[in-house]
Structures are given as structure tokens and as C-alpha cells.
Design a binder for these strands. Sequence first.
DNA 1: ATTTAACATATAATGATTCTAAACTTGAAG
DNA 2: CTTCAAGTTTAGAATCATTATATGTTAAAT
Lengths: 142, 142
Amino acid sequence: MDKKKDLASKLRTSGLRPTKQRVLLAEFLFNRDKTFHFTVENLNKAINKKNSDYKIALATIYNTVHAFKKAGHLKEIFIKEGKNYFDTNTSSHHHFYDEVNNELTDIENNKIELKKFPTPPKGKSIKDVNVIINIDNDNQKH
Amino acid sequence: MDKKKDLASKLRTSGLRPTKQRVLLAEFLFNRDKTFHFTVENLNKAINKKNSDYKIALATIYNTVHAFKKAGHLKEIFIKEGKNYFDTNTSSHHHFYDEVNNELTDIENNKIELKKFPTPPKGKSIKDVNVIINIDNDNQKH
DNA sequence: ATTTAACATATAATGATTCTAAACTTGAAG
DNA sequence: CTTCAAGTTTAGAATCATTATATGTTAAAT
Ligand SMILES: [Mn+2]
Ligand SMILES: [Mn+2]
Ligand SMILES: [Zn+2]
Ligand SMILES: [Zn+2]
């Protein structure tokens, strides 16, 4: 199978041994058409659902997700306390956050343009910019 | 003392009894010229430092901060895992985040202007927009 | 002054994440 | 093909921020 081989080399290139667990997680996360946003809790449930042919320990899921992040294959996104999202889109980009469904949607960088722009404090320079647009159902009372 | 009386009415108006602990915390947080960004850990240390004349239980600090937030006197800001900031500036505004010193700086709303702007998904409307500009020391290697 | 709901507090519980230490796997070398 | 060391997985323990509990205290209305 081609895809599996590709993933194995992707992992090796990142200095990660392509173990069974890592390849399975990489398949699940990276063999997709669209960006995938998830929490560790999410991922754990999806992978270890009953009747699944293969189980991965929660510690391994943590280890792997962090290893993938360190290797640049995942981005971490902070939205709210106790909700740590990871993102398979590692490009610099922005998000809609739907508070009703706890869902993230990508906004590509070129869809947002900052007109005015503040000067960073002396001795500091801008590393990156994150825009989160919180969205609600229409006609929501505040 | 005028300031104390003001705080007591501010609390009463919010439906909060002006207890000794709340008044003390309100003084510490709100009798300032500038915006104050803090974590609960921060606040607890500042209030309960040794040789301080009055101690407040950690649970009370949590309760009070959450009560102040609910009453609209504090805003909560999510920057990274395990770092929950609160903000005495409750207006809609943005931030610089200095990753080196773990420090937030306000950017007033009118200092940033979004030129291009994406359309929210169908049935959803924008509640608010949060921009975080991560900053680094100059000449930092990535 | 009495009364009662609101509040503060010490302590226990929770829950997400990290650590530990033992067993297993991978890939390189012989 | 074996051997071997470093890397990896795992169950379970530990950690740590936060929240819940249960008891004593206080604000403020009557
Ligand atoms: Mn993490
Ligand atoms: Mn909180
Ligand atoms: Zn994304
Ligand atoms: Zn602020």
C-alpha cells in the first residue's frame, strides 16, 4: 500500500520510528482531504472505540500527538480552559470557533488582512498572529 | 475612605455582598491606573505573601475571581494550556503575548482593523473577534 | 437582637496530563 | 539470521490546577 509507505517515510524523515501505533495514528490524522481539528479526548475515543481491531494506550496517544507536534505535523490551538485542540493544518492560519458545537473551522491567512497594525514593544518582534472569530447561532440573545 | 465605599457599591450593584475578602481583592484588582492581567496562581501569591496582614483561602480566590467575571468585572483570556489569564480590561480588545516573559499587553480595538473579512458559516453570526499577536525577543532564531 | 441566606474556609475529590518502570519493538551491526 | 541497544509502548501511579463538600462565619433584612 502506497499511503502507508509514504507515512512511514514521513515519520522516518522526522526522526520518528514508524511503529504500528504511530502509523495507525498518522493514517487516521493525515490521510484526509480536509483539515482535522481534534482534542486528545476526541482522538482517544475515535481510535479506541469498542470493536476496533487495535487499541492504543492513552499515554501513547499523548506521546504521539506531542511527537507529531514537535516534528511540525500538528499545530496546537488554545481556545478555552480544558479544551486543547490540535490541528492538522500546520500553516499559519486563523479560525472560526463555534461555541455551540465546540467546532473549529479554518480561515486561510489570505482571507483576513490586518489594515491597521500596532507596533510591538521595543526589543520585540512579531512571531505570529492568531485570530479567533467566535461565532454563535443567529438571533442569539447575549 | 472613598475608594472602599465605591468598591462596596460596585459589588452590591453586581449582587455581590461586599465581604472583607471581596473588598480586599477588588481593591487589589481594580484600584489601578492600568489594565492588570493575572493568573489565579499570581493573584494568590500576591495576596497571601508572607507577612501580609490578611490571608484569603485559595478557594475563595477562585470563587471571587469567577464571581467577578460573571458580574462582568473581569475577562478571561486563553493563551496556552495551564495558563488561564484574567483581565481587568473588560472591553473588547486584543493582546500582545510575550512568550519569553509570559506577559500580556493590551491592544485597544481601534489599533487593529480587519480589512478583509470572511463570511461566517450559514446560520451563524460573529460574536466577537480575538487577535493575539505572539511576540519574541529581536533576533530570535526559530 | 434574631434570623437566614450568602459566604469563607479547610479539606477531599476530580480529571486532564505527565511520570515511572517494566516489557516489547525496531533497526543496525555482526 | 541472530544479537543488542536504544527507542517505544503500556498500565498504573503521581501530579497539579481546579472544583466540590461540609462546616463554621457573616452580612444585612426584619
Ligand atoms: Mn500538551
Ligand atoms: Mn475557570
Ligand atoms: Zn486550523
Ligand atoms: Zn487585556
